[in-house]
Design a protein around this nucleic acid. Structure first.
Lengths: 221, 221
DNA sequence: GTCTATAATTAGATAGAC
DNA sequence: GTCTATCTAATTATAGAC
């Protein structure tokens, strides 16, 4: 140890300093990603300022252009990060809800999805702000994230609909009705609060998840 | 007539000129309101620029501060204008759908509401962008427009729920599930188009309205 | 990698001619 | 009422010291 420090003292201290610098850099990157999610969700891509993002992350505005190439590259990295968290969150809630048959499996997926979107309101806020007008960002998010999930849900619904397990409803109608019904209470949580109800409480989320299963799959069947 | 023009020619031409100027002013105001709705819906309050709004209205940017006091005053006037159009549009669709009993009346209201939000996608786009974060604008829109409509729908649902006419679902859960299910397909219409489906077509809207009645009221009962 | 300073644009709002 | 010109402040991005 002392031999190491004596044989190459400069290199060793340089290495630990490098390690520290790199850890600090990773922390800055992560803080910027988290701050970006909040700001983009609250003000939209154009309304969010890089200064506000940097300030929320506890660092300086030029760090955004250093760690990411541009405001748009930061946005893409933040969205990737968010969808990865969605998958993890849905899976976590699914594991707690084992299912036996097709109907119970879809019921579990609806409950898990509802709990996940309640946990990650920023995701649907960003989606709804971007999906409102055609743009390069929308095209990117659709091909990267929306389409695979859209195809998976509509395929499942098509199968259950043919089997007569679910109501006779077109799959695109179903997709937007289900996603809209599951997400609006959390996207609009600040509004709901003003209307005198906290939609972020566990009791609301549980009642909401159960209600969606009843609405989309019926109470028994 | 010719006597009028000859007895007070200056006053008369001044009066018609005034009338023309006033008509032009009203046209400018209306054009600004319509342009503001599109821009605010597409980019949010902070993302929309007064220059882009004026250009879309075919006039110049300082006209906004002349006809309205500020960007925020223009936003409020545009939102008032939009909610007034919502009421007219819902009523128009309701008249076409007479109802006999409580359940049929609510079914008609769900169908009319769905068709109205499909016709006015800007309304829910603006709502979802403002309801995402607490602000003076959100508090204003909630007290002016959201709360009365919220109270009306939840009161109706409470009554039908007590009578056993509808599924046993909490009224706040119902409110956000129904509004979300009815609006997302139109709020996110550009995304839906990229996913290969035009949700603005009459056939989609009809299928959607019927599906929501089945989902929220059951297929018969 | 992080900081300060600043360049280059663009924002909302105002002044004043017509 | 409508126009051009412009003010002040805020925006994203870059340069360069450390």
């Amino acid at each position: 140890m002392s031999s190491t420090t004596t044989t190459r003292p400069a290199t060793s201290t340089g290495a630990t300093a490098n390690r520290r610098r790199q850890a600090r850099a990773t922390a800055t990157r992560t803080a910027l990603l988290d701050a970006a999610l909040v700001e983009f969700a609250a003000h939209g891509f154009e309304g969010a300022s890089t200064r506000a993002i940097a300030e929320r992350a506890g660092t300086h505005q030029p760090q955004i252009n250093y760690h990411f190439d541009s405001k748009e590259a930061l946005w893409r990295a933040a969205v990737d990060h968010l969808f990865a968290r969605l998958d993890v969150t849905v899976r976590r809630h699914l594991d707690a809800l084992p299912a036996n048959n097709d109907r119970e499996r879809l019921a579990s997926e609806i409950r898990a999805f509802t709990r996940a979107v309640a946990e990650l309101p920023e995701l649907n806020r960003i989606m709804v702000q971007e999906a409102t007008i055609d743009s390069d960002r929308l095209r990117w998010i659709v091909e990267q994230h929306t389409r695979p999930r859209f195809e998976r849900l509509t395929a499942t619904w098509r199968r259950l609909r043919r089997a007569g397990t679910v109501p006779d409803i077109d799959e695109v109608v179903l997709y937007y009705s289900l996603v809209g019904a599951a997400s609006l209470a959390y996207v609009n949580a600040p509004e709901a609060r003003l209307l005198s109800h906290d939609t972020m409480s566990k009791s609301f989320i549980d009642a909401h998840a159960d209600a969606l299963v009843i609405l989309f799959l019926g109470s028994d069947r």
